[in-house]
Computed example of a mutant assay.
Amino acid sequence: MPKVDIYTKFGCGYCVRAKRLLDEKNVSYIEHDVTTGGEAREEMRRRAPNARTVPQIFIGTLHIGGSDDLAALERAGKLDPLLQDDGNVA
């Protein structure tokens, strides 16, 4: 299973929704809190230069986008194949 990163802020309902979907699928992920800015926020901006909202989700090196994007992949049946990849998702 590839590494999953999710950039979040405190009190973000969309972040909670995205994490819930990943939890329901028993996907482990690394949560990066960008509430107060700092290095985590700068890292998020480097990885997703046009992203201005949270959550920002990455599966391997693939930028998924936000909570709605993650849910759309799930509805389309495309999320599980990404999560089963060998970790070299580009």
Rank of each mutant, 00 (worst) to 15 (best):
H63T: 05
N50D: 13
A40K: 07
L22Y: 01
L73S: 02
D5C: 05
K3F: 12
G66M: 04
G38F: 02
Y7M: 06
G60K: 03
G87C: 05
G37A: 06
A40R: 03
F10N: 15
P2N: 07
D5I: 00
F10Y: 14
D86A: 08
C15V: 04
G87V: 04
R52Y: 07
R47Y: 08
K3Y: 11
E42F: 02
K25G: 13
T35W: 11
P81H: 03
Q56V: 09
E74C: 03
P2H: 06
I64R: 00
A51D: 07
L21W: 00
I6Q: 00
A71V: 15
T61C: 15
K78G: 12
P55R: 00
Q56P: 08
G60P: 06
N88Y: 07
D69G: 07
D85K: 05
L79N: 13
L62Y: 09
A40C: 12
L73P: 02
K9A: 07
P55S: 12
L82V: 11
D85T: 08
G66E: 02
R17A: 13
V16C: 14
G65R: 02
G60E: 08
R47G: 12
T8S: 14
V4L: 13
Y29M: 07
L73E: 01
I59E: 04
R46C: 13
A76D: 15
P81Y: 01
E43Q: 13
R52C: 12
R75H: 14
I57W: 01
A40D: 09
I59M: 08
V89A: 15
E31I: 06
T61E: 12
P55F: 00
V54L: 01
Q56D: 05
L21Y: 01
K25C: 13
A72Y: 08
P55W: 01
